[in-house]
Write a protein that binds this DNA or RNA. Structure first.
Lengths: 124, 124
DNA sequence: CTAAACGCTCACACCAACGTCAAGGTCAAC
DNA sequence: GTTGACCTTGACGTTGGTGTGAGCGTTTAG
């Protein structure tokens, strides 16, 4: 299939697909006229990338998952490199949460000083 | 005082001070030779900006605080506009924390699937 | 007098993941 | 044969807060 169809099926822009290719995440065959030619498996690759990005992974983070899928595994999760990325990201997320909580505390303290009567309720 | 001294005293780069000025946060008198001329109060303005940025505020967020100080208040917190920014940022931080927690949950779920034996402990 | 240390104004570089043109080639339908 | 939907590469714009350097003038210590 050509880039437009893959883009529609995967829910991304053609520009994004070219960007992924440029960064070595997705390869495409070329038709005689120079058009990119994708197969069914590529739909899965892009889906994997998007689902990872949806939880804050970078393209770099997604690389091992794509490699894992291309190596023939049914899931991009099935390789130790992927597991390692999950663990690293988990630690990163925890660190970010802690930083944010610390900031929240700081801001709440300032708000109390600035406006003692102001109710500080967590937006939940 | 000139820009270098203010930079040292406030713990920022001269470049940053020029940037703040460019964005209307800090004004400087100009000496006859064109050099910026700051007074003691500017040390406090910059300190206010830096302390806000340290908790994740943008320069835009800092604007009302600086205006408040320049209006003669002892603290940049003392104006209703500042309080409003605190409240908005608090809500933003809460939203970010929630998004991160949701992502963490998602990643932890994937990690469990990928590696059932892997311990998932929060980095604390 | 001179050299270091400072100041000035541009203006590009950075990070990520694309969006959005530009300027063109290709291909099916009418 | 021409419209229009598709494809190609290339290259600049976005966002925030600077870092860095060029190319220049000023001040100050020795």
């Amino acid at each position: 299939m050509r880039i437009g169809e893959l883009a529609r099926r995967a829910g991304v822009s053609a520009r994004a697909l070219r960007y992924y290719e440029e960064h070595g995440l997705i390869r495409a065959q070329r038709a005689a006229n120079g058009y990119r030619d994708y197969d069914e498996a590529d739909v899965g690759l892009v889906a994997q990338i998007r689902s990872l990005m949806a939880v804050g992974f970078t393209l770099e983070d997604a690389r091992p998952f794509v490699a894992c899928l291309r190596a023939g595994h049914a899931s991009g999760n099935a390789c130790p490199e992927s597991v390692a990325v999950y663990q690293r990201k988990l630690a990163e997320i925890d660190a970010e949460i802690q930083a944010l909580v610390a900031r929240r505390t700081e801001v709440a303290t300032q708000l109390k000083q600035a406006c003692p009567g102001c109710a500080i309720r967590r937006t939940k």
